[in-house]
Design a protein around this nucleic acid. Structure first.
Lengths: 220, 220
DNA sequence: AGATGTGAAGCCTTTCACAGCC
DNA sequence: GGCTGTGAAAGGCTTCACATCT
């Protein structure tokens, strides 16, 4: 009825993803000095319906005011708490290649509550190099280091052939959240959260449509 | 009943995404010398049910043999055609930063049928530099260059603040497929295919679960 | 009047289960 | 016997439409 003190037991990944999108839009609105937003407007900016926005938010509480809309800073703060962004998250990056370098130099991470606190590679030529303030460590040190630093998220940015072996090491270290950039379906226990970012799959989604949509007119 | 000569009119993005996954698994099986695979096995490797595999494939034709399974090279080839991977796709990369550099040096692109044929940036310090064999061009040259080179896909890898302006230029050039790495919901006409890769959203999907799943036992 | 919160309806996706073929 | 292909059932997500509150 009123404020839901407990988190609903099952929220779909679809919903969580949209909450993230709302959060970033609210962040931008907030920076632009916008103080109030309707589900209608938030929906347009997120490319979803206003009903979807209201339903998603209502799963976690009554954040709006009827007749008025949602207060931007307040809703942003609420979503930050829901998404777990009120704390700093420590990340271990595995793979000191081009992609790893790009991730490591991504300045906005820290502002958003994410910090890469250790970098690993297994190639002797890489180990010992300094990246920003971090010395690249050998994978043998992974488990000890992440436990000492209380790392809770691992980013895997190694070649395909090494990805599963690396995932096994990550899982063995006790880390339960993995963001994987290697183009392979990794096998991990069901208690480990795995997200994949696969460039080829995104591009193939585009080429599928390029190949099949020869419909210049609405009637095809 | 038999082979479907026409493509079904509406295939969901969920399905297309899974077809990509199957394709890459088949590619790997093929390299390992596996010649036949069942929907059961392909499902396990893709983390979906066997029924899902069969349903997805049956939308495009009868590719398997009852009692036997699917022939790996044959099914791989069929999926390649469905996904449009029987041709080379030319890509324009916009944004010559760290991420752009990582994308540009990604060797596997070419083997998979994708080739970055032009790189653009708007900053004078970048323009004129050589990346691999490509000279970085100014954004002013975008439209002319992509038309001359028959580019059909654009990758946007610029900062948030420039993303929408870049998207507008891309759309104006006639390109109808965009892969966007900027963390913003871009506004494009409905005939333009847009895919987003957003690191923050993936990480927030992980932190949501880290924050809410305090359930060591199945009974919670 | 204006906009949220929400049960119910509608729609889409996945799974089931078995007929059909190898 | 084994495995695919598929109509039907089940499940899940989105939209509708309106009661509710400011």
């Amino acid at each position: 009825m009123t404020i839901k003190l407990t988190t609903p037991s099952t929220i779909s990944d679809f919903t969580v993803r949209r909450l993230s999108i709302y959060y970033h839009i609210l962040d931008e609105l907030n920076q632009n000095g916008v103080t109030v937003v309707s589900s209608e407007t938030l929906g347009e900016l997120s490319r979803v319906t206003s009903a979807q926005v209201r339903k998603d938010l209502s799963l976690f509480g009554n954040f709006g005011r009827r007749g008025l809309g949602y207060t931007v800073p307040e809703l942003k703060e609420k979503l930050a708490r829901i998404l777990g962004l009120h704390q700093q998250w420590k990340i271990a990056l595995i793979g000191a290649g081009n992609l790893g370098s790009a991730l490591c130099s991504y300045k906005n991470f820290k502002r958003q509550g994410f910090e890469i606190v250790a970098v690993f590679d297994k190639h002797p030529a890489k180990v010992g190099q300094m990246w920003n303030q971090l010395k690249i460590q050998h994978m043998d040190e992974f488990s000890d280091t992440v436990q000492a630093l209380s790392v809770t998220i691992a980013i895997i940015a190694v070649p395909l052939s090494e990805a599963q072996a690396v995932a096994d090491i990550v899982v063995a270290s006790g880390i339960q959240s993995i963001l994987n950039f290697a183009p392979r379906t990794l096998i991990v226990p069901s208690n480990v959260q795995l997200r994949n970012v696969n460039l080829a799959i995104e591009l193939e989604g585009l080429t599928y449509h390029l190949t099949h949509e020869h419909r210049p007119s609405p009637l095809g």
